[in-house]
């Protein structure tokens, strides 16, 4: 079953008829995701990819019973799209859009919380429960079904990790791309917590980046919660200079506590299996599960 999304999830696409929305909706449908329709204001009443288009998320939910939304709306309008989804009662909102102003997200995150929804992202690859539902832009074929959960701030590095797991004879339950922005809906700790409580997940790969305290918070929570499942961790940006933004808006070293080295140290102290090299994620997980000392 995995977490957040599964084969029963009814998914709508916001920004359905745009080029990004069209391309990725097609890929999601091919993967087997139950895409029940989409929203493009002004195009309601038409059909797109053999599915109904609605003017508002509210209307889409009323007509399709959708409970998950994925957002491909351009950055200036994306925070509004997030709030519209939450207001319409969507439970899991996945926002792919990159480049949303931070102040917009500060407000949108609070709004989603007040409506009882869960936001994943923005600036993320989305969520995939392998073999069941892909609500994102990741290459589906890399994520072979299995029992390892992935939590990651990065897109391609998530694909890399999944590929290494599969080559090490393992597979993926659910991979959650939480996003690389300074304000994101679901923190590393919250995503890890979902997987810790998932009966279909035996172990977790946690991939972070420089900047912020999310990984350290997650590591402390994992220990406080009794290290119930093994967690293999990696932090990208050991070689990043201070004060420079490395691609992701949130990937910036501000002080001595948000460097890769500091985060890795905290992760080690809290019983995580930390890999120094991004090439060793899969191998390390396989060893950990076999009970080999790493």
């Amino acid at each position: 079953m995995g977490v957040l999304v599964n084969k029963n999830s009814k998914v709508i696409v916001q920004g359905f008829t745009g080029s990004e929305g069209t391309f990725h909706a097609t890929q999601m449908i091919e993967y087997g995701t139950k895409v029940v329709g989409g929203v493009t204001p002004g195009k309601g009443g038409s059909m797109h990819l053999d599915r109904p288009v609605f003017n508002t998320v509210y209307e889409a939910v009323q007509n399709t019973g959708a409970d998950v939304s994925i957002i491909f709306v351009p950055a200036p309008f994306a925070a509004d799209a997030v709030m519209e989804a939450a207001d319409a009662g969507i439970k899991v909102i996945v926002c792919i859009t990159e480049g949303i102003p931070v102040q917009d997200m500060v407000v949108a995150k609070e709004f989603v919380k007040s409506r009882g929804g869960r936001l994943i992202g923005p600036n993320c690859p989305g969520v995939i429960t392998a073999g069941e539902a892909k609500v994102g832009i990741m290459p589906g074929f890399v994520f072979k079904p299995g029992r390892i959960g992935i939590v990651s701030k990065s897109g391609t590095l998530t694909y890399e990790a999944a590929d290494q797991l599969v080559k090490a004879g393992l597979g993926v339950s659910t991979a959650i791309g939480i996003g690389g922005d300074p304000v994101i809906g679901t923190s590393t700790k919250e995503a890890v917590e979902l997987l810790m409580n998932d009966p279909d997940t035996d172990a977790i790969v946690m991939i972070g980046e420089i900047g912020g305290t999310y990984e350290a918070d997650a590591a402390r929570w994992i220990k406080a919660n009794g290290n119930k499942k093994p967690v293999v961790g990696f932090i990208a940006g050991q070689t990043a200079p201070k004060g420079r933004t490395m691609g992701h808006a949130g990937a910036i070293v501000g002080g001595k506590d948000d460097t890769a080295q500091a985060k890795m140290e905290i992760m080690r102290q809290n019983g995580l299996y930390v890999v120094e090299s991004p090439a060793e994620i899969g191998k390390t997980m396989a060893s950990v599960l076999k009970g080999v000392n790493v």
Partner: peptide
């Protein structure tokens, strides 16, 4: 030269290692 910010940072780290 890498695609994706996270993988790019990870690649820099691999270079150093």
């Amino acid at each position: 030269m890498v695609n994706g910010a996270g993988l790019a940072m990870a690649t820099m780290d691999l270079i150093k290692l």
